[in-house]
Computed example of a mutant assay.
Amino acid sequence: MSTHPKTLVLGATGGIGYAITNSLLARQWPVTILVRTRSKAAALFADNPLLTIAEGDAQDAAKVDSLAGSADFIVHAINYPYHQWFGRMESVTRHVIEAAKPRPDRTIAGRTLPGPATVVFPGNVYNFGNTNQPIRPDSRPAPCTRKGQLRVELEAMLEQAADAGQCRVLTVRLPDFWGPNVLNEGIRPVFLGALTGKPMPWLLNADIPHQSVYTPDAGEVIVRLMEQQWTQRLTSPGDVAAYRVWNYGGTTLSSMRDWFSQITQLTGKPSSVRVYPRWLFSVLGLVNPVMREVKEMLYLYENTILLDDRATLAALPDFRPTPMDQALRDTLRWFAETQLN
């Protein structure tokens, strides 16, 4: 009988959730995804007998709870546009914690595993503000924005729930990310510009180092950490930490301008960068609620913020990140096949 754990993924049609789901399925783990639009998910994922697509809203607590009934892991990769964070992110996190609580129907290989499900939470660097020191897994939060404070509060909710035995938590903090199906307004125009010869946009400063991660690598790191914990639960359940934080920083690019040039060398199109100034977001924020929220995050583009991921890489000695050239080619191919009309 298979000993693969069952996983519920929330946010599977987003960039990180998509990558995690693909890594899980590549390991033959059964996965259920909760999506608002079934057709969108069906277009993203190939037919797979191990994948169950459920349609619904993660704000529906009863729906999340019913799908998580036999789940060993719940991936909380839900994200909303910035202006919808407040209220929604807190409530969906509460639903996930509630769904992870211990119940008798979580079984594997014909036996019940004690304890709650593990919540897998992709974090970010917002908790630590404009720091010039590498962020360690145990660094103290020092947010300088409202959204940073909210991320601190979400992680605190998860840690308190883990300490109370309501769930286990694997938080994996990531920097900016890019790759197939990353369709935010910071990344999508870059790859479409590279494919069409249009200027590739960036914010404030394209000439300083910037840490960024390729989503399939992030998904692989997260799933390897899940795999390690699962093995430990089967063999030494008493040694499994209730709450654990990991960092994965991906690649520290010498500058975005150099990276953009590397991308256009693969497309054969002109390399052109359009850097948007700070004042523009003040103007756009008058009429656009997302741009209003972006304004407080601009420090991330004026400074180099770094995650210290040495502990993660030491724990995963066989992990090898995708070579940059291959990662860029695969991402360009995905955008060319799915985003160009």
Score class of each variant (00 low, 15 high):
Thr3Pro: 11
His4Ala: 15
Val9Thr: 02
Gly17Glu: 00
Tyr18Phe: 13
Leu24Gly: 04
Leu24Cys: 08
Leu25His: 09
Gln28Leu: 05
Trp29Val: 12
Arg36Glu: 04
Thr37Cys: 13
Thr37Phe: 09
Ser39Leu: 12
Ala41His: 01
Asp47Tyr: 09
Leu50Asn: 15
Thr52His: 05
Ile53Gln: 01
Ala54Asn: 04
Ala54Gln: 06
Ala54Thr: 02
Glu55His: 09
Ala58Lys: 01
Ala62Tyr: 04
Lys63Pro: 05
Ser66Lys: 14
Leu67Ser: 06
Leu67Cys: 12
Leu67Gly: 13
Ala68Arg: 00
Gly69His: 13
Ser70Pro: 05
Ala71Pro: 02
Asp72Cys: 15
Ile74Tyr: 04
Val75Leu: 04
His76Ser: 07
His76Pro: 06
Ile78Asn: 04
Asn79Trp: 01
Asn79Val: 04
Tyr80Pro: 11
Tyr82Ser: 10
His83Gly: 11
Phe86Thr: 12
Met89Trp: 05
Glu90Thr: 14
Thr93Gly: 11
His95Asn: 14
Val96Lys: 12
Glu98Pro: 02
Arg103Asp: 05
Arg103Trp: 05
Arg106Pro: 13
Thr107Trp: 08
Ile108Glu: 06
Ile108Ser: 14
Pro114Ile: 11
Thr118Asp: 04
Val119Cys: 11
Asn127Ala: 13
Thr131Ala: 07
Asn132Pro: 09
Ile135Asp: 00
Pro137Ile: 03
Asp138Met: 10
Cys144Lys: 10
Cys144Ser: 15
Arg146Gln: 15
Leu150Gly: 11
Val152Met: 07
Glu155Gly: 13
Glu155Gln: 13
Ala156Trp: 11
Gln166Ser: 14
Gln166Asp: 10
Trp178Thr: 04
Gly179His: 00
Asn181Trp: 05
Val182Thr: 14
Val182Pro: 03
Leu183Met: 14
Pro189Ser: 15
Val190Ser: 02
Thr196Met: 09
Gly197Ala: 08
Pro199Asn: 05
Pro201Met: 03
Pro201Asn: 14
Leu203Ala: 10
Leu203Asn: 11
Leu204Ser: 07
Asn205Ile: 05
Gln211Asn: 11
Val213His: 03
Asp217Leu: 02
Glu220Ser: 09
Val221Lys: 00
Ile222Trp: 03
Val223Lys: 02
Val223Asn: 00
Gln229Lys: 14
Thr231Asn: 14
Gln232Thr: 08
Leu234Val: 14
Pro237Met: 03
Ala242Thr: 11
Asn247Trp: 00
Tyr248Ile: 08
Tyr248Asn: 06
Thr252Gln: 12
Thr252Ala: 10
Phe260Glu: 00
Ser261Tyr: 03
Gln262Arg: 10
Leu266Trp: 06
Gly268Trp: 01
Gly268Met: 02
Lys269Arg: 13
Ser271Arg: 08
Val273Asp: 03
Arg274Ala: 14
Val275Glu: 05
Tyr276Thr: 09
Arg278Phe: 15
Arg278Asn: 12
Phe281Asp: 01
Ser282Pro: 04
Leu284His: 15
Val294Thr: 06
Met297Lys: 05
Leu300Trp: 03
Leu300Met: 15
Tyr301Thr: 08
Asn303Gln: 08
Thr304Ala: 08
Arg310Tyr: 07
Ala311Asn: 06
Thr312Tyr: 14
Pro317Lys: 07
Arg320Ile: 12
Thr322Pro: 12
Leu328Asn: 03
Arg329Gln: 10
Asp330Lys: 05
Asp330Glu: 14
Thr331Leu: 02
Arg333Gly: 09
Phe335Tyr: 15
Ala336Lys: 05
Thr338Asn: 09
Gln339Met: 04
Leu340Ala: 08
Asn341Tyr: 10
